[in-house]
Write a protein that binds this DNA or RNA. Structure first.
Lengths: 122, 122
DNA sequence: CCTTGACTTCGAGCGCGCTCGAAGGCCTAC
DNA sequence: GTAGGCCTTCGAGCGCGCTCGAAGTCAAGG
C-alpha cells in the first residue's frame, strides 16, 4: 500500500498543496489519514478521489456540485442512479459549452484569416 | 444606418445592459454615441465590436487581453500583425484548453459507463 | 400635470475558487 | 543543540468579472 505526502500528492494531481487542503476542508475529499506528526498521507483511494475531482473541476463543475456528488458517494451504493444522473447532466452542459466555444472560435478564425489576407496583400 | 438602445443591443448580444456599460468603462468598446437625453445608441460598428468582444470572452480571453487587442485596433492599421499574433496565440491556448476538457470528459464518460453497467446488473 | 419606465453615473458589493501568511510543531542533518 | 525544511491550522485576502442599487434625468402617454 503506497501513500504520498501532501506535496507529492499535489505534484501528481497537478494542483497545489493549498488546494488539496482547501478541497478537504470543503468536503470534496474524505478526511485524509495522518501520521503521528499530523502530516497527511494520501492513500490510493484519496488519490483516485483527487484525480476525479480534478476532472470534474477541469470541466467546470462548481465546487458545490462536486460536493453534492461526493456526498452521494458517501451516502452509499443506492445513490448510484442519482450520481449517474448528476454526471450525465454535467456532461451535457460541458458538451454544450464546448460547442459554444467552438462556434466562437470560428469567428476568431475568420478574423485571423482576414488579417492574414491583409498582411499578405501589402 | 441603424442603431439600437442599450437594452436592445444587450438582448442582441446576449449580455446584460450592465455588462455593456461595464465593457465601455473598461475600454473594450469605443465611446458609444449618445442621444440628446444622454442615452446610448449602439451603431453597427459598436455592435460588431460587442459581438467580437463577446466571442473573445466566450473563449476565455481575460478582460485585460481584450483591452490590449482593442487598444491595438485603435492604434491604427499597422498594428495588424500584432493583433494577428495576439489572436493566433489565444487560439492556441483555447485549442489546448479544449483538448484538456475533452480528455477530462473521457474520464467522466468512463465513470458514467461504470454506473450504467452497475445499474443494469441489479 | 403626473406617472411610468427606460435610461444615466457612480461606487459598492458579490460569488467563486483559490492563495497566502502567520505562528507553530516535528524530524533530520550537521 | 540548532538550522532547515516540510508540515499543521486558521482566517484573511485577492483577482476576476460582473452585478446591483441609489439617486437622478428625460420622454411619452393618459
Amino acid at each position: 500500500m503506497t501513500s504520498l505526502s501532501i506535496s507529492d500528492a499535489a505534484a501528481q494531481a497537478g494542483v497545489s498543496a493549498h488546494t488539496l487542503r482547501y478541497y478537504e476542508r470543503a468536503g470534496l475529499l474524505d478526511a485524509v489519514a495522518r501520521e503521528g506528526s499530523g502530516h497527511r498521507r494520501f492513500g490510493e483511494a484519496d488519490l483516485a478521489r483527487v484525480e476525479f475531482v480534478s476532472r470534474l473541476r477541469a470541466t467546470g463543475m462548481p465546487i458545490r456540485d462536486v460536493r453534492r456528488y461526493v456526498d452521494l458517494v458517501r451516502a452509499g451504493d443506492d445513490t448510484e442512479p442519482e450520481r449517474l444522473a448528476l454526471l450525465v447532466e454535467h456532461r451535457e452542459r460541458v458538451r454544450a459549452h464546448l460547442a459554444e466555444v467552438r462556434r466562437s472560435l470560428e469567428r476568431i478564425d475568420a478574423k485571423i484569416d482576414l488579417y492574414r489576407e491583409r498582411t499578405r496583400s501589402r
